[in-house]
Design a protein around this nucleic acid. Sequence first.
DNA 1: TATGCGCCTTATAGCAACTACAAGGTCAAG
DNA 2: CTTGACCTTGTAGTTGCTATAAGGCGCATA
Lengths: 132, 132
Amino acid sequence: MRIGELARATGTKPETIRYYEREGILPAADRTDSNYRDYSTDHLATLTFVRRARELGFSIAQVRELLALSDHDEKPCLDVDLLVQQQLAEVERRIADLSALRDELRQMLRSCQADKIGECQIIGSLGRHART
Amino acid sequence: MRIGELARATGTKPETIRYYEREGILPAADRTDSNYRDYSTDHLATLTFVRRARELGFSIAQVRELLALSDHDEKPCLDVDLLVQQQLAEVERRIADLSALRDELRQMLRSCQADKIGECQIIGSLGRHART
DNA sequence: TATGCGCCTTATAGCAACTACAAGGTCAAG
DNA sequence: CTTGACCTTGTAGTTGCTATAAGGCGCATA
């Protein structure tokens, strides 16, 4: 299959697929007589894997590790577990950060009863007009 | 005050302060005889404001808007409110996304009882070994 | 046969928001 | 008078793509 078909099949743009090839994440495809990339079902499987991992928030570097691990059936599953646990911890940290942030933003909205920026509590709480 | 002192006072690296100046977010400082930047307390206030807004997740573009608004005391506070509300909505959206992601990662960890990658449910759920 | 269209190729530059050099100038302390 | 911490400018790197330019390929239609 050509790059456009693979792109449609995986919801990836052709440019992104070429980018993955440059980065060594997706193996280079065979070429047709007219130098078009010609992908196999293995490529489709790998790209699907990559996109799914990216959707789950794994970085390109982590995807690389996952791919390397998935090529070694005999290796302990714990190695994969560890990566997933790390990613889970990272996601939980980001959720906590964003939740604190959300609470602050809500507080800002609740606190402002002024109608001119000169007396605005939001601007004030951001560090301006503090000397008034 | 010189750039290093301002940096320490605001928890910002000197490079970042120069970057803000290039971007027009922080006004250019006066220069000493030896061409060092010489900052005022106004600069300190503005940089504090910028950093606080950035911590709250506002983009550089939004910070620019907030700065512009904060310079016009007579403008309606609603303009600021709107920006904060947009940012709040964005943060809530990100929290929702990350929560879904967290649940998926937890599910993956729970589902894998194998000890070799060949049978690993995690790798499987990512799209590999699906044909076994 | 020509030509138009959608697809493909490469190479290069851009995005956000910094961060990290490199190469050199300045200044107070020992 | 030299060391070391500071400052200057300019440029390139980071992450994960995305966009654009300039051109080649392959098929349907006039």
